[in-house]
Design a binder for these strands. Structure first.
Lengths: 214, 214
DNA sequence: TGTCAATTCAAACGTTCGATTCAAACACCT
DNA sequence: AGGTGTTTGAATCGAACGTTTGAATTGACA
């Protein structure tokens, strides 16, 4: 299918850039193939259809992103019986800015695409995205339950959505040079938010979290 | 311009629904006018162009949303010299779910549109959106600085982006019947995140922040 | 060098798009 | 009723869309 690296990848790169800038439907195959210096028919030859190209652009990075997240999560959990919450959150957040494998704007662009995909009722795309994300989020939820025993799991699901939303929105809006600082701030912000729901839930004196009062 | 309520508003309603479901570019004027039981030419007559219709759909709710936010913010600030952080955050979050003025799905739909608009490099739309949001966010940042004196203002800007991203993402993804619980969780989550950056910044004993109530 | 499969190319297909036109229908005022 | 400005209707425009086709080109192996 995708034997040669040349045309096939040039199309993926051009499509990713244009999709991020203009959107899926607003970008024509003629724009993509022109930017990729490829023939118009090359898209349907290599990918079958425009919809399949969208999915290919999408999977190329998201698969790697979520794989990196889970690998880093395993690493964070391997240390001890009581994993560090901040390390878990870094496993969720930091790989997102490692998307910038070559061009420094790649991560920024892909976050825009990610936000579009979330916003789209594109069905095929939205379905595939939600399914894959659900698996990853379940893993992270389990890890956080270990790090913060007693946390309400329904609330945790929502809070994970908060974190993903904050990460996606902020990285899509901000320039990529701030990505590292954003990630650090988000980890701290999210850790405090998560801990707060535990300390409210378990007001018994032995709470190890949040004992900075007056 | 928009004297009669009938056709003009029917078009706006249909456009909002279709934009949320299909996206701006994927929705044709023919779909909109057919759903609105109006003539194709009515769109260009009433709004001038498709782009202007998008802006009109957008402004109709966003103006009201941000107005409600600022009104509730003023109310939260009027109470005392030391405003309550949770009340400020509620002023940011709660009006978003009050968008559901008639149909319960309206707010959910509009959040999808909002996310699309953020993701779009639509330029006119993105520019107008960012400008209007910047004004509101500046007001909220000032209020939070009063509620949490000593907070780092650059970090606060990022944290406000976290909150807006979490709100938009979560309300767009979840069904609207959970909106109230989501808002409550988000306020608590965000308040803890904001307070954490202050307590880290000012570890001197007299920190008045973070007094775990109840 | 000849062969064959993989890839690229130019050209065209039918469809749908946003926009425009002009006449008919409507509402409102004197 | 007659005149005026506003709104809708049906038809049509050129442009751009995604897709398809079949011939030209390439490159590896015999």
């Amino acid at each position: 299918m995708t034997a040669t690296p040349a045309t096939c990848d040039r199309i993926l790169d051009a499509a990713e850039r244009l999709f991020a800038e203009e959107g899926f439907h607003a970008t024509s195959l003629r724009q993509i193939t022109q930017a990729a210096e490829a023939n118009l028919a090359a898209v349907n030859y290599h990918f079958g259809s425009k919809q399949a190209l969208i999915l290919a652009v999408f999977r190329r990075r998201l698969d790697a992103l979520n794989e990196a997240r889970l690998a880093r999560l395993d690493q964070a959990l391997a240390g001890s019986d009581q994993p560090d919450l901040e390390e878990i959150l870094e496993a969720l957040v930091v790989p997102a800015l490692a998307l910038t494998h070559g061009n420094a704007d790649d991560g920024h662009r892909f976050m825009r695409i990610l936000m579009r995909a979330f916003a789209d009722r594109d069905d095929h795309l939205h379905r595939a995205l939600s399914a894959e994300y659900a698996h990853v989020m379940r893993r992270f939820a389990s890890a956080i339950v270990i790090a913060l025993p007693g946390i309400d799991e329904l609330k945790l699901r929502r809070q994970l959505d908060f974190i993903v939303g904050a990460l996606t929105h902020t990285m899509a809006e901000s320039c990529s040079k701030d990505a590292r600082a954003i990630a650090d701030d988000l980890v701290q912000f999210a850790a405090a938010g998560l801990r707060s729901s535990v300390s409210v839930q378990k007001p018994d004196g032995a709470s190890r979290t949040l004992e900075i009062h007056s």
